[in-house]
Amino acid sequence: MSTDLPSLTDFLAEPVARRALLACVLIGFANGFVSAFVVLRKSALKVGTLSHALLPGIALAVLLVGLTQWSALAGALFAAMLVGLGSIFLSRSSRLDQDTSMGILYTTAFAAGYLVLTQLNIRQKLDEWLFGSIVGMADTDLWIAFAISALAVLTLTALQRPLLIYLFEPHIAASLGVPVRFLNYATFAITILVLISSLQAVGCILSVGLMVAPAATVFLLTNNARALFWGGGIIGALGSVAAFFLSYPLGWSVSATIIVVLGALFLLAFIFSPRYGLFSSRRRS
């Protein structure tokens, strides 16, 4: 298989490849960093809902103004907002809990988006939105990814102190003077932005993995909530870069490899964590 491929060095000499590698670092780190929040907030399902809901938004934007980077981003943002707020509205105004509402909302939204996109004759692009195409990233995409990553890391770092109390005791954080409502909105906005940035790398189906697995791995290794953020970022970036180099000679999809590598790292921590692994003597019965 590798005989008809240029060597890795030749491949890395291509700007496309270098951009893809840089994108792995940026997007991997930002998603890993934010995954700490997702894991501590126990909102993996919600993120899954949001990421699937990005598809109909993109479809709608493409239908209205044609396919550009910006229209796709704006559509994704709009859809995420709609589903996020919609699930809250549904669960508040009916007997259903939020999990159930989200389950219905995201599958319906996803199916609708799929139908629209298949009707639009841009079939070749569809796979990219579903599973990502990190190799096709342009300079603009990289700048967007960089800006979103920087914003996420700076905001979550600046808010770290109130954020940890909010995550630990969401219902009583207010009694410690934590601005709960502000944190709710700020973290929701950041989650959506980072999700959108990961769209291009891994697509909307696999993005949940990138936004949960890194911190979930660190969670099994430490008692320090702050370490989840930076540790998650590092694992996200390293895992993505490792996947990039692994996928090339094997001819695998980069996005799928990223998720498989992160999943494998999680499995290793799950089995071998000195503190909380399967074989740990300290594991509580």
Partner: peptide
Amino acid sequence: NFPLTVRALVEMGRYPNLGWW
């Protein structure tokens, strides 16, 4: 199960006095 040590929990008590930064 929150990744928090006893010390980190007690340190949280300083937050209302310290504010964000």
